[in-house]
Amino acid sequence: MNDTVKNINTTNTPPSGGRGVKAGIVGGAGYTGGEMLRILVNHPNVEIAFVNSNSNAGNYIYEVHTDLFGDTDLKFTGELPNDIDVLFLCVGHGDAKKFLEANPIPDHIKIIDLSQDFRLSQNSKINNKSFVYGLPELNRDAIKSAQNIANPGCFATCLQLGLLPLAAKGLLNGEVHITGTTGSTGAGQSPSPTTHFTWRNDNLSIYKAFDHQHLKEIGESIKQLQPTYGRTINFVPYRGDYTRGIIASIYMDSDLSGDEALKLFEDYYAGHPFTHVTSRNIDLKQVVNTNKCFIQVAKHGNKLLITSIIDNLTKGASGQAVQNMNLLFDFDETAGLRLKATAF
């Protein structure tokens, strides 16, 4: 590919007169790092100061994320400059903790970690740094005053958004049953037998039934709103034969009528710009490539059925991380995140 890129914003500097922050990305060559770049390169308040990738240091970003050709001429670096305001850790689970142990980050830099390393309360501190769980629909006020954010998991985001309104009113009274299907990008960029095209295509499979790692953070959030809840959340995840998006069906016994349940969800999410509630049927393409969550609420006999859909790479990862950054720096919560769905 030609190394010359014309007619681009080479520094990704915010428009003259606008408030801006400098952002650094560690782990910029993977799926979440790529999505972060796609969002931040057009964010009105962000200058991308550096993108770290030891394996790609010196290469142009568009040589790895080829769709960014024409959008930026930044190169990956193996360095970690400290003249930034916010650092995104787009690294694998376990690697964020190792990174912070090996690379002390000055206190003036806010950290948003996309791994699972600091999501649980018992793991939310390292050295002198504390992390706030970054689900805006649950912890918006705490996020605004935080120094560091633990970004929620993709399945955890989708499922919690389907449960929080009920927990907030103490209405989770029995076992919850969930099935959810995620795209192949949820497994990360490193190839494995279950992400290989010839295995994944035209195929479905169950994995980590009743024992998915995101159940722990879901449980903590539910107890934050409904401390007395002690029943089982039964979750059966599926690997889907598509690249991105999560669809989850959640059902439980409920005395609420359909109209009561719909209003409960509408009221809870009334002030949240990315989560939308309906009684109509929803489908995954409505949210893929966006930071939105759509929730359908329906009553079937004594069962309340909640369907929740998100894009695992945006609302389930990088988009939500940028949403958290917007809250941390008092930007418009939707800045840089008015994204178009794939639609068809």
Results as ranks from 00 to 15, higher is better:
Gly245Met: 08
Asn139Met: 08
Gly153Ile: 00
Gly30Phe: 13
Asp330Arg: 06
Pro44His: 07
Ile109Leu: 02
Thr290Val: 07
Leu172Asn: 02
Val5Lys: 01
Cys293Arg: 01
Thr157Lys: 00
Thr307Ala: 01
Glu260Trp: 10
Thr334Arg: 10
Ile105Leu: 02
Gly34Phe: 04
His212Asp: 06
Thr11Ser: 09
Val91His: 03
Asp3Glu: 05
Gly17Val: 08
Phe88Pro: 09
Arg280Ile: 08
Gly258Pro: 13
Gly271Glu: 02
Tyr62Ile: 15
Asn281Leu: 06
His272Thr: 11
Gly188Asn: 01
Arg239Gln: 07
Phe76Met: 10
Gly336Met: 08
Phe274Cys: 06
Gln147Lys: 03
Ala209Trp: 08
Phe210Gly: 15
Asn9Lys: 03
Asp95Trp: 07
Tyr268Ser: 03
Ile109His: 01
Gly245Tyr: 11
Ile126Arg: 03
Ala343Gln: 07
Thr32Lys: 01
Ala102His: 07
Tyr62Met: 15
Phe210Cys: 14
Pro14Ser: 10
Gly240Val: 06
Ser55Ile: 02
Arg38Ala: 12
His272Pro: 11
Asp332Arg: 00
Leu304Gln: 05
Gln323Tyr: 13
Gly316Trp: 01
Tyr60Trp: 12
Thr195Ile: 01
Lys169Arg: 03
Lys144Tyr: 14
Asn59Ile: 12
Phe344Val: 15
Thr278Asp: 14
Asp259Val: 08
Asp259Asn: 07
